[in-house]
């Protein structure tokens, strides 16, 4: 492991470094994932660009329209403890509090968590269920990407080499919406999920389900939107949930590992989606 470490003070300086070093550069926020990947020899950048000293990437702030902006270098624990984040949605802070241990959450940062694109992470499914967009900058300009389109495979994103995640923007929550995050941990409390489920749901005045978003973690190469389940429930009474759950096992694409066989995880995805929907339809 041999590299040069750079710690730019501004976004412009960071983007210039990225342009200069191209594929040989790797961005680092909190460093929890980057340090491990470098130590294991899975990542061998010539230049590591630390983002933690850039003021523009910090902070957790309510937006003017009642949404929430989370800066890329907010730690996971800062989100977990943020009164603004809790006010926005307790399910959001619950999801961040589910990650590993206090030590890890004190170091790991939101932008790094998203760029790492680990399908078993807790924040991405919840952010996706809350319909987040990712703010991205490069020297070519800036763009917003629906979070569903960020992760494209295990540990792989759609980001170009010259792009930096600057933050995440959550839209205002519609009145009457309910949100939840559930994590199935059959082994230890600091483990990755065997399956996790983030769900948001809003009833229409007539008692039917107006809108729902269901995103599953740890049961595919990326967080998985259970779109067929969502479609089956939209406009329907909550009594239809039981039937819709039968669609869940075919929505997911888990692998056999120490946390269970693929078949077991498919079944647990169905069970835990049912539990999540029970919470938001109660």
């Amino acid at each position: 492991m041999t590299f040069d470490y750079h710690e730019p003070r501004s976004l412009a300086e960071a983007l210039a470094l990225l342009d200069r070093y191209g594929d040989d550069a790797h961005l680092m926020a909190g460093g929890t994932a980057t340090v491990l990947l470098m130590r294991q020899g899975l990542l061998r950048p010539g230049h590591v660009i630390g983002l933690r000293a850039i003021d523009d990437l910090r902070g957790i702030t309510p937006t003017r329209d009642g949404g929430l902006r989370i800066g890329a270098t907010a730690t996971l624990r800062a989100v977990e403890r943020s009164p603004e984040a809790r006010m926005y949605s307790p399910a959001l802070t619950d999801a961040f509090a589910s990650v590993a241990t206090v030590r890890i959450r004190n170091q790991a940062m939101v932008g790094g968590n998203l760029a790492h694109a680990d399908p078993a992470q807790d924040p991405p499914p919840m952010l996706a269920a809350l319909n987040a967009t990712v703010s991205i900058r490069s020297s070519r300009g800036e763009r917003s990407l629906p979070i569903d389109e960020l992760a494209v495979d295990h540990f792989t994103t759609s980001l170009a080499h010259d792009e930096i995640i600057t933050g995440v923007v959550l839209p205002p929550i519609e009145p009457g919406s309910r949100e939840t995050y559930l994590k199935f941990l059959p082994k230890t409390a600091d483990d990755y999920a065997t399956v996790s489920v983030a769900a948001t749901l809003r009833f229409a005045p007539d008692g039917t389900i107006a809108e729902t978003r269901i995103v599953l973690g740890a049961v595919g190469p990326t967080p998985i939107r259970a779109r067929r389940v969502e479609d089956a429930l939209r406009g329907q009474p909550p009594s239809r949930v039981r039937d819709a759950l039968e669609l869940v096992p075919d929505e997911v694409d888990p692998i056999d590992d120490l946390r269970g066989s693929a078949a077991y995880k498919r079944e647990m995805a169905r069970v835990w989606t049912g539990r999540a929907l029970a919470r938001v339809t109660r």
Partner: peptide, 9 residues
């Protein structure tokens, strides 16, 4: 703040 010294640059 509580941190892991084995992970911290």
């Amino acid at each position: 703040e509580l941190l892991s010294a084995c992970l911290l640059p």
